[in-house]
Design a binder for these strands. Structure first.
Length: 303
DNA sequence: CCGACTACCTGCCCGC
DNA sequence: TGCGGGCAGGTAGTCG
């Protein structure tokens, strides 16, 4: 499910309800997700007050008033939601915004009892059917193994065409893999990589190094790509992320950026680039689908 | 180091 | 209607 825009949407949905709330208890419905819950997880956070709900790449970072920070990764199918009956907030009390059968789903692996100073008692559930998500604790999350090797945030100051040129120089792997590599740039996943490459008119099989000049500077294509990455992420966040299967924000709202996909999951459709006569094609790279237009994303087109 | 591939797990959709 | 196969937004580990 979630790439950077979806995780950011979740963060924004959770923050008003979590920040300031005290963790009364946490119950685990199983011993592990992708990995075992950290030893002493419930004991370490019970009684603490949540101060911040942050994000780094696709990781949610829940900062407490004492002790470790909670690191939560949603994997492919992780989601947070509140029990509607627990709050008078209109955004949460609207039953139609909740999936049927909610409260006791078999994939509700984690239940948090919270006490918010103005909203009162809240029950936060974490569901994750495929259990590719995980939760960890870290005293210093930026130095944890999860975050320490990540590349810059694509919407932050550390991201630029020049920085991409330095990381891509001399590498032969396809640009598709380069943008998916969280050590190069953190937070992109399959959808937004595919969309950004289309916007920049770059073939997904273009070698990374072909986007760098002999002097080590970004080509015009790489300039376009850096801008396309930022633009697609900004637009997706503004739309509340993309709803494929069942993604929704913690308040139950559906994202709608999927309606703005130009190529993702559009094999066989006409290319939406103005004046382009191409048809969207699908190939598999490193086991994952890439969608692109063979006409306006020609291989070797770097300028 | 680099790059390709596999595993992890469940659900859904499609064709037969 | 049932069943098998393929596919899915994630990362980590292995192997050449």
């Amino acid at each position: 499910m979630p790439e950077l825009p979806e995780v950011e949407t979740v963060r924004r949905g959770l923050a008003p309800f979590l920040e300031g709330a005290r963790i009364e208890s946490v119950s685990l419905n199983r011993a592990d997700l992708r990995f075992p819950f950290p030893a002493g997880f419930a004991e370490a956070i019970t009684g603490k007050r949540i101060l911040t709900v942050g994000r780094r790449a696709k990781f949610l970072l829940i900062g407490l008033d004492a002790g470790p920070t909670i690191i939560s990764h949603l994997g492919m199918t992780g989601s947070y939601r509140f029990l509607a009956a627990d709050t008078e907030s209109p955004a949460l009390a609207e039953p139609s915004r909740y999936r049927p059968g909610d409260a006791t789903g078999k994939h509700d692996h984690l239940a948090w009892q919270l006490d918010h100073p103005t909203l009162g008692g809240l029950t936060l559930l974490y569901a994750d059917p495929r259990r590719f998500g995980f939760i960890d604790l870290a005293e210093d999350p930026e130095k944890s193994p999860w975050l320490r090797d990540l590349g810059p945030e694509p919407l932050g100051n550390g991201f630029s065409a020049q920085m991409l040129a330095e990381r891509f120089d001399g590498r032969k792997a396809p640009i598709k893999a380069g943008l998916l590599d969280q050590k190069v740039v953190a937070g992109l996943g399959n959808i937004y990589v595919v969309e950004a490459l289309h916007r920049a008119h770059i073939h997904p099989e273009t070698p990374m190094g072909a986007l760098v000049t002999k002097a080590g500077a970004p080509t015009a294509a790489l300039d376009r790509l850096a801008e396309a990455v930022r633009a697609v992420l900004i637009e997706a966040i503004a739309a509340g992320g993309s709803t494929l299967r069942d993604f929704r924000a913690a308040d139950g709202e559906l994202g709608y950026f999927q309606h703005s996909f130009k190529v993702y999951d559009r094999e066989g459709e006409p290319c939406p680039t103005p004046g382009c006569t191409g048809t969207i094609a699908r190939i598999v790279q490193s086991g994952r689908s890439s969608f692109f237009c063979p006409v306006c994303q020609k291989r070797g087109r770097q300028g």
